[in-house]
Amino acid sequence: MNQKSISSAQSIPSTQQLVYIALFAAMISAFALVPPIPVPIVPVPVTLQTLGVMLAGLILGPRMAWLALLLYVGLALLGLPILPGGRGGLAVLAGPTGGFLVGFIPGAWLIGLIAGRARQLSGPMQFARYFVACVLGGIVLVYVIGAVWLSFVANMELMKAFLAVLVFVPGDMLKAAVATVVAARLARLQLLPHSR
């Protein structure tokens, strides 16, 4: 088997990895069933989806998390009613939440990338690394993409859009803490899947 064949075989997810990818896409869909909480000052509701994004990144690693979110977003855009409020379809991209949805994909990848190096750590250092990964990938990156999209779709000044999404920070920091605790516990029990 030549080097090209080996690298090609390594790029194909195993059956076990496909199960994890599908499982996390389904979990995020289940989180979307929790009724969204409207926010008066911005046309984007509070949902549990970001918790799913953070958990996917921390638990699956960058590649599988990226694929899980790509699957979830792809199914939603194909029309499956798996977004908060039972929405789905390409029209979602024309709305104010479209940027956040798209941002979940690179957000999960970044979380997995940063957290991947923390698997060998333990205790407070691992916890801190997981939490920072959630903040940078699940909050900062998703907010930047979401705010730029919101500014464009809602014809809002960019700075105003950035300030508007700051209302989500306290809730998302809490989600980051929950995801960190769950992932750190799974790591301690050696239950995290091997990611590539």
Rank of each mutant, 00 (worst) to 15 (best):
residue 178 V to Y: 02
residue 186 L to V: 07
residue 104 F to Y: 15
residue 176 A to S: 10
residue 23 L to Q: 01
residue 115 A to T: 03
residue 3 Q to K: 09
residue 109 W to P: 06
residue 27 M to K: 04
residue 84 P to V: 04
residue 45 P to F: 01
residue 192 L to R: 10
residue 159 M to Y: 01
residue 111 I to E: 10
residue 24 F to M: 15
residue 154 A to Q: 14
residue 68 A to N: 00
residue 81 P to T: 03
residue 187 A to K: 07
residue 56 A to H: 06
residue 171 G to A: 12
residue 20 Y to D: 11
residue 6 I to Y: 08
residue 124 P to E: 05
residue 184 A to L: 03
residue 45 P to Q: 03
residue 127 F to Q: 11
residue 144 V to T: 01
residue 147 A to N: 06
residue 69 L to I: 00
residue 86 G to W: 02
residue 77 L to A: 04
residue 190 Q to C: 09
residue 19 V to M: 12
residue 83 L to Q: 08
residue 64 M to G: 00
residue 98 G to T: 07
residue 144 V to R: 03
residue 158 L to I: 15
residue 19 V to G: 10
residue 85 G to T: 08
residue 139 I to M: 14
residue 13 P to V: 11
residue 181 V to N: 11
residue 19 V to N: 06
residue 187 A to E: 07
residue 54 M to D: 03
residue 14 S to W: 08
residue 13 P to L: 06
residue 105 I to Y: 01
residue 188 R to V: 12
residue 4 K to E: 01
residue 94 A to G: 12
residue 43 P to E: 03
residue 109 W to C: 14
residue 183 A to S: 06
residue 49 Q to S: 08
residue 87 R to T: 14
residue 83 L to E: 00
residue 113 L to T: 07
residue 43 P to G: 07
residue 143 Y to K: 02
residue 156 M to V: 04
residue 107 G to E: 13
residue 159 M to Q: 11
residue 47 T to E: 07
residue 47 T to K: 08
residue 92 V to Y: 04
residue 28 I to A: 04
residue 182 V to D: 11
